[in-house]
Amino acid sequence: MNKPADSASTLPARDRILNAAEIEFSEEGFSGAGMKAIAQRAEVAQGLLHYHFANKDGLYEAVIGRRAGNINAERLARLDRVDLAAPDAVERVMEALLRPPLGPAGGGRAYARIFAGLLVGVARDQRMVLEHYDPVARRFIAALQTACPGASPQILAWGYSFAIGALVATVARNDRPERLAGTGASPDVDTIVARLVRFASGGLRAAIAAETDTN
């Protein structure tokens, strides 16, 4: 069984448990993940999992809450620096939205699998999205409304959702685009973010223009 890279005994037990649980939930899903397996990965007694998190549901929510907190904090810090009156405001808002999950705050491939599953998951996952992601999503949609004052809230909400869909397809970094294109190594994060931002911003602008033409 693989151990988390940062399972060193110098880490507090709670952090080791969260790191191990993130990997276990990523590999096995919520149903397949076992508390015993997580305890073994974290190199702690299983009783500590129940002490800190009560049960598997509590541990899963803590994994989501920790990572979502890191992502959202960086997103909002970046969003606060955007000049919403600037010509490239849409691009800058999209970059603030899309870059953090692909950087250190996003937790790499392990959380990427969990993140992707949240958006299409069962009621438990939908509740996590509602609690941990929707409030920040509304901040971003409001920012887009300021940047695009003539756009309807509906088209902005759809544009936001399409951007997140593109992010989910990208965040796992499984090299599928390179395989389909027959090219070599995957591009770096800056290149990926730039492509995502152009795609999301261009799509939103086109959707707004189409909506304007039909009204």
Rank of each mutant, 00 (worst) to 15 (best):
A68H: 04
A68W: 02
I71D: 08
N72M: 10
N72A: 14
N72Y: 07
A73E: 15
E74P: 06
E74V: 06
L76N: 10
A77L: 14
R78Y: 08
L79W: 00
D80P: 07
A85F: 01
A85C: 10
A86T: 01
A86N: 07
P87M: 09
P87Q: 04
A89D: 03
V90M: 05
R92T: 10
A96Y: 03
A96M: 03
A96H: 02
L98N: 00
R99F: 13
P104V: 14
G107T: 00
Y111D: 04
A112I: 02
F115S: 07
L119D: 14
G121M: 07
A123M: 04
R124M: 09
M128V: 09
E131N: 12
Y133G: 03
A137S: 15
A137M: 13
R138V: 13
R139A: 10
F140D: 01
F140T: 02
A142H: 03
A143S: 06
L144K: 07
L144I: 03
L144V: 05
L144T: 02
Q145D: 04
T146C: 07
P149H: 05
G150W: 05
A151F: 02
A151E: 00
S152E: 00
P153Q: 11
Q154C: 12
I155G: 06
I155P: 02
A157C: 09
G159Q: 02
Y160N: 07
F162G: 11
F162W: 12
L167Y: 11
A169I: 06
T170Y: 11
V171Q: 05
V171M: 04
V171N: 04
V171R: 06
N174T: 15
D175I: 09
R176M: 15
P177W: 09
E178A: 13
G182F: 06
G184T: 08
P187I: 05
P187T: 03
P187N: 02
P187G: 10
D188S: 12
V189Q: 13
T191Y: 11
V193Q: 01
A194S: 13
A194K: 09
R195V: 12
L196N: 01
V197L: 02
V197W: 03
R198M: 14
R198T: 15
F199V: 14
A200E: 02
S201A: 14
S201R: 11
S201D: 04
G202L: 06
G203S: 08
R205W: 00
A206M: 12
A206N: 10
A210Y: 09
A210S: 13
